[in-house]
Design a protein around this nucleic acid. Structure first.
Lengths: 340, 340
DNA sequence: TTGTAGGCGTTATCAC
DNA sequence: GTGATAACGCCTACAA
């Protein structure tokens, strides 16, 4: 196959000691070595096709130039742009991304986090942490640089980037009430995840602020941010009396589930019932009907999280930053004035 | 912060030599050590919360329990299920996944592949290789276990999993001709990628087999598998005379682009023009109109690729396997009989 | 400016 | 069955 070229090989060819070769090859220490010598080393390295062994370097320097990214499920269209934003911000600095899907399963989260730590990652971006899971405790205690993306922690202080969920929901309720809706149902996401909780709280607050009752009969809790759960919850809502004229969903996946339930029940959106989502996932503008939803810049959220992580890893004692991205409402075809 | 527990710490606490502790901790070599001693070591490790340092181990053993996955762009909904399938198949065996988005850019491909090799990955899954790019040459020469997913190599022999693209296109043409279409346009994907090329070839072959002419005026080549390119190509097709009554697209992204171009032009799908995609990406069943397309099991494709890679990494001299998954046509609302 | 030496945490190969 | 030793490839005081 192929014989790996090591620093010794380069040094030998350049006629210098490996230590000198190391210094010449490393931009940081290059000034320490004679220009001419450095040139010889560099060209020897080039000719041999030398690539430093990142593992050996990592063992020595305690830096792996690798970061871990934990997400619930890549198949949720919300996450690909976030991951992409992370990678794009990190790649120019030489980092590479380890990815792990957790399914919001505590054990799996734990396992993946440990595997990443074992591999000496320089930092982690979590979009996955349960509000009070042991993962956050472990992360905090480990001293590993950790940044939260699209999530907030209750009890620990991590840098984070997220959306102003309350504000987003407020926009949703504002839009629906303007259209004339009064009986608004809510499909809430899991309450042990910060996005689920804060949007739910935002719903309650906004409804009350609008002088409407957040009737518990018109609130259903999904066990996961999934299409299937959205469908189930919507079915329940359809049975409530008097019926809702609009449904707000904790995220777009749940909203798509509502579409499915409405189809099943032979109800039309928005003629019979309006539906609003949250996230503005890719392609929801092309659903039938196009989904009215709360948008925020996903890619940028990832990029910002990466930026925070870089700060953190540089360890310049920056204070812990908590960033909020502004949401905005995108009105499309899934909302209309109530029928009556 | 936290003091990392090393093998020496465990050994010391168990009152044995580090080498013995190592043997006791490793299932493979445990039989070599006294049961009682092993027990002591294990419990010492447990009490201290010992986790072996994967980097050090990797330096020594030349295995990193890490595999690299290169894809064009995670934001193309085709890839998340594939990546997920890969991870799920690999995780039980202790592997972790490094991911890289290449945008089909040769330099970026190269860079990411090298970074992964530097980190001593045990293998790579490529869904991204240009047909004749230097990446494949480098991969072949490196001796690193490499598997192709959703791609085929022209000049090298790699294990691979892909769809039978010719067959898929044949189904598309069969469906359209049955509906009565004769003037069928084609939005071809990039020809330097195997999926683009084989589907294009399949189109030509199928058209001829159906006794139709594959008129060059009704074939447009996209420079990328993107919505934007699909839109552009469809615009061109709309200008051809006599006009097509149906458009087949090289993949779903291009088909979505066709939707956009039709919207722009005020043409209706399927009333004015039928559109067919390829891939059955998630959510295309919920587009407006639901997209008729060629489906295949994405998740399973990833899982199979991972399986092939595991074989390869085990190095049991298996012959090179080339796997094809059967496609099937999913007829939805975007196709209908031609207007006239 | 360059060479020497030691060690990062493991595991493999010896001896005992 | 266990301990000693060396080495994986690199970096970095320190000495020259």
């Amino acid at each position: 196959m192929a014989e790996p070229v090591t620093l010794r090989d380069v040094a030998q060819r350049a006629g210098v000691h490996p230590a000198t070769a190391s210094r010449a090859l490393n931009p940081e220490t290059r000034p320490l070595v004679n220009e001419e010598t450095a040139r010889r080393v560099l060209s020897a390295a080039g000719e041999l096709g030398y690539r430093p062994n990142a593992v050996a370097r990592s063992l020595r320097t305690k830096r792996s130039m690798t970061v871990g990214v934990l997400i619930p499920d890549l198949r949720n269209p919300l996450f690909p742009p976030i991951v992409r934003g992370i990678e794009d911000r990190l790649a120019p600095d030489g980092y590479v991304v380890l990815i792990g899907n957790t399914d919001l399963d505590t054990d799996r989260e734990q396992m993946l986090f440990e595997r990443m730590r074992d591999r000496n990652v320089d930092g982690c971006i979590l979009t996955t942490a349960q509000l009070r899971g042991s993962l956050l405790a472990e992360a905090a205690q480990s001293g590993l640089p950790v940044v939260l993306a699209n999530r907030l922690a209750e009890e620990y202080s991590f840098p984070s980037v997220s959306v102003d969920n309350e504000l987003g929901i407020k926009m949703v309720i504002g839009h629906l009430t303007e259209l004339g809706h009064r009986r608004i149902g809510y499909v809430a996401g899991p309450q042990d995840v910060s996005t689920g909780l804060s949007r739910y709280q935002g719903f309650i607050t906004s409804m009350e602020a609008a002088g409407l009752s957040a009737d518990p009969d018109r609130i259903v809790f999904a066990r996961a941010f999934s299409v299937e759960e959205g469908r189930r919850c919507c079915q329940e809502l359809l049975a409530s009396r008097p019926p809702c004229t609009a449904i707000a969903a904790g995220n777009d996946m749940l909203a798509v589930g509502c579409y499915a339930a409405l189809d099943d029940a032979g109800r039309s959106c928005p003629d019979d019932i309006s539906v609003v989502g949250f996230n503005d996932m890719p392609f929801v503008d092309r659903l039938r009907p196009p989904l009215t939803t709360v948008a925020f810049p996903h890619y940028q959220l990832g990029a910002e999280a990466a930026e925070l992580l870089l700060d953190r890893m540089a360890g310049d004692g920056h204070p812990v930053k908590v960033l909020y991205l502004a949401p905005h409402l995108v009105v499309r075809g899934s909302t209309a004035a109530p029928a009556g």
